[in-house]
Structures are given as C-alpha cells and as structure tokens.
Simulated assay, not measured.
Amino acid sequence: MIFASMKKNGAILTAFALVTTGSVALVQQLTAPRIEAQEKNHLMQTLTQVIPTSKYNNQLYLDCVESSAPELGPNGPHRIYRAKLDEKPVALLVQHITPEGYSGNINILTAVYNNASIAGVRITQHKETPGLGDKVEIKKADWVLSFNGQQVTSENDSRFNVKKDGGEFDQFTGATITPRAVVKSVRAATWYAHQNFDALFAQDNLCQQETL
C-alpha cells in the first residue's frame, strides 16, 4: 500500500516536472526572437550615441571584428565595431570591460578615431552604487561626456586620471573608485585602438558573416 502510494506520487511529480520543463522551454523559444530584436535595437541605439551619424554611412552593427587584447579587460573576446564613410575607415567602436569598479565589472563602449581622439563613451552595464558610482551612466549624469574630443597621447597619458590622482577628470563625492576605473579603462582601450587601427580594419568582417 505504502509503496503503491509512493509510486503514484513519484509518477505525479515526474509528470509535473516534465510539464514545467516543457513550458519553460516553450516560453524561451517563443520569447527568444523578441529578446534578440530588443538587444539588437539597444545595441544600434548605443552605437549611434558614441559617434555622430554624419561621420559614417555604413551600418555599424553589421561591421565588426573581435579582440582578446588584455587592454580591453576580462571576459574576451571583445567586439569592436567599425565606422566607415564611403568604405573608408573612420573610427573603431570598442567594447571593453574594467574589473576595477567598486561593485565589480563595468562594461564600456568607446569610439576612437585614428588619431587616438575619442568621439564618445557610454557605460553599457554596471552594478555601481545608486546615487554614487552610477553617475558614470549617461541617464544619471553627464560626466561621461567629458571624454568627448579628448585625445590619448601615450599609453600612460597622465591626463587620463581623476583629479585626485593628478589627472583631468572629475571624481564623484564619496565615490572615486568608479570614475577612476572607467578613466583608466577608456585610456587603455583608446590607445589599443589607435595602435591597431589599420590592422583591425584589415580583418574579416565577423558581423556580416553572422547574417549570411
């Protein structure tokens, strides 16, 4: 009697597990295209924020290469989008990560011209403290706009530090770690893009291959 009851309950639990697993898989399958479309739309919007649309006429999200260079941080390879005007190289839009944020990794997108000047920077993902470190995000403050037009002149350009460290970039009251990490990462990514500009444009287009 007891064994029969246990067997019956086990069968019910198994059936419930199968139904639940199937439902989750079905939901994922149905929502995957919508999520992919939303991610693509967000990417396109972010790419257009860091470089003026008058500077290029190719579709940025369809032209990219990848790099695992240490200057771009952990979790590589990192994607680098290429801006062109009439098929001529204009800028590299570099995705990079700094692991030195107060609350962990900060994902960054930096657009770099050939002369190592910066078209724009955006923070694409972070877990920094609300009201303090999250001021690196454009929705919270305009601090990130201070990179616009700045030029990195060397690998260790001392201007690319927060003012507390002798540089030119503001830190936040009560939160120096976050802006320090971002400035350092932007400097490294910009110099990498400058030093490898022609080589990165010479590589095969990975994004175009993904659409074939």
Rank of each mutant, 00 (worst) to 15 (best):
I97M: 04
V136K: 04
R79D: 08
F147D: 05
N107S: 14
D142Y: 01
K135E: 12
P99I: 12
E36M: 13
A111T: 11
Y113D: 07
V152L: 07
V162C: 07
T129F: 09
R82P: 02
D86A: 11
P74D: 01
G73N: 03
L60M: 06
W143G: 00
T53Y: 02
T110A: 08
I108P: 02
T124K: 00
Y56W: 07
R122A: 07
K127P: 04
V136R: 03
E128M: 06
I80C: 08
D86P: 01
A83W: 08
G76K: 01
A83I: 10
Y56T: 05
Y81E: 13
L85K: 14
A119N: 11
T153L: 12
V162P: 01
H42G: 01
N57F: 05
N41S: 15
V90S: 05
T110P: 05
Q59C: 01
G76I: 07
K40Y: 13
D165G: 07
P52R: 05
T98E: 05
E155K: 15
A37L: 08
G133A: 03
Q151M: 12
E36F: 07
G133N: 03
L145S: 06
L92G: 06
E71L: 03
V65I: 12
Q45M: 04
C64S: 15
V112I: 15
Q38K: 14
A91S: 15
F169M: 12
S54E: 15
N161K: 14
D142V: 06
P89D: 02
L43C: 13
Q49V: 01
V121K: 04
K135P: 09
G120N: 08
L132D: 07
I138E: 09
N41Y: 05
T129E: 04
